[in-house]
């Protein structure tokens, strides 16, 4: 791109000193190379500003329409009709209030005392951390159950047409039922607490992992199988060292979609079947009309989901570092 503006030092006219001229000439090729490489970094402030512009504008607008102090502004004070149209702080609390509530929500409820344990533990003893941890635990357990069942079944169904014919009709009938539709049944079967949540979450994770694993195994390029058999691979070794790794891009896509669905399920499950966790907390806050806490909880849910997805992304690019598209993904 515009390497000229990016690195003006490369363009600095040489001084009259002969050695300085020689030095600057000698440095010229690397200087050009550095300019090209450091370009994205040099543009970083501009890019950062671009990505922050819209969120900041939205926050400002939100603050403006919801802040009670705005209604006292001389310009607005004498227009009660206009003020009446602005939402009350009960309905839409301003971002500053949400932030305050969020900090309060995350703070420890008890003052620190040494005999209760370490300082770090006390720091994370607030309601928010308890809830986030409870939700995370449910997602992880549910996902491990769901994916743990789906993966071997998918591998068998992908590898064997017979197994596929046995299981496929049942799965095709069950698959379109949204996991949320299992809520009444799960409560009937498992009561309240973690068990119905695990059930719903594992259901949510099950099908994406299953479907992708099947197509992963079925789409293994025949040339790999031919090469492997030519080298003497057969049976379990062929499966473990060739078919499984060849199918990992599909399987990991399934896992990533699966954990996304599992995360939806954990919030839904907590809203109906548990008495802690982020999903439960925002339902509870509604009963007290704490809209600021609802929003703080929602943001926490978003951040936890983002964290999970980032983690899966990192795992993907590590496990698929051999894959053609892996580099392109890592740079974005």
């Amino acid at each position: 791109m515009n390497s000229v503006t990016a690195n003006p030092s490369a363009q600095t006219p040489a001084t009259t000193d002969a050695t300085a001229v020689a030095a600057s000439n000698a440095q010229q090729p690397p200087a050009v190379a550095t300019a090209r490489v450091s370009l994205p970094w040099q543009n970083a402030p501009a890019k950062l500003a671009q990505s922050l512009a819209v969120p900041l504008l939205m926050l400002l607008l939100w603050q403006f329409i919801s802040d009670p102090r705005v209604k006292e502004w001389p310009l607005l004070k004498h227009h009660p009709a206009l003020i009446a149209r602005l939402p009350s702080a009960q309905i839409l609390p301003p971002p500053t209030q949400v932030l305050r509530k969020w900090i309060e929500y995350s703070e420890p409820t008890q003052p620190y005392s040494a005999e209760q344990g370490s300082y770090v533990r006390w720091l994370f003893s607030g309601e928010l951390w308890d809830d986030a941890f409870a939700s995370l635990q449910r997602v992880v357990v549910g996902f491990i159950i769901g994916a743990g069942l789906a993966l071997p079944l998918g591998l068998f169904m992908g590898a064997s047409d017979t197994v596929y014919r046995f299981f496929n009709p049942l799965l095709q009938v069950l698959r379109p039922i949204p996991p949320i539709a299992y809520i009444p049944l799960s409560i009937l079967w498992f009561g309240l607490g973690n068990k119905p949540a695990w059930f719903l979450i594992s259901l949510g994770a099950f099908f994406p992992v299953l479907v992708n694993t099947i197509s992963g195994v079925r789409n293994v390029d025949g040339i790999f199988l031919r090469a492997a058999r030519n080298l003497g691979a057969r049976g379990f070794t062929l499966f473990w060292r060739v078919i499984l790794p060849a199918a990992t891009p599909y399987i990991l896509t399934g896992a990533r979609v699966g954990i996304g669905v599992a995360f939806i399920c954990v919030i839904v499950a907590e809203m109906v079947a548990t008495n802690n966790g982020l999903g439960w907390r925002i339902t509870e806050a509604r009963e007290f009309f704490w809209s600021d806490k609802i929003i703080a909880g929602m943001i926490s849910i978003g951040l936890l989901g983002l964290g999970l997805d980032t983690l899966m992304d990192r795992l993907n690019s590590y496990l698929l570092r051999w894959h053609r598209g892996a580099d392109a993904g890592a740079n974005n």
Binding site: R226, A227, N230
Partner: peptide, 26 residues
């Protein structure tokens, strides 16, 4: 097929998830 008649394919058919060393060692 068997390893007494090793085959080189036009499409290389290297295992992309294995390093060069692992491909040769496989």
């Amino acid at each position: 097929p068997g390893p007494d008649r090793a085959m080189v394919f036009q499409e290389y058919a290297l295992f992309p998830w294995m390093t060069v060393w692992d491909n040769v060692a496989f």
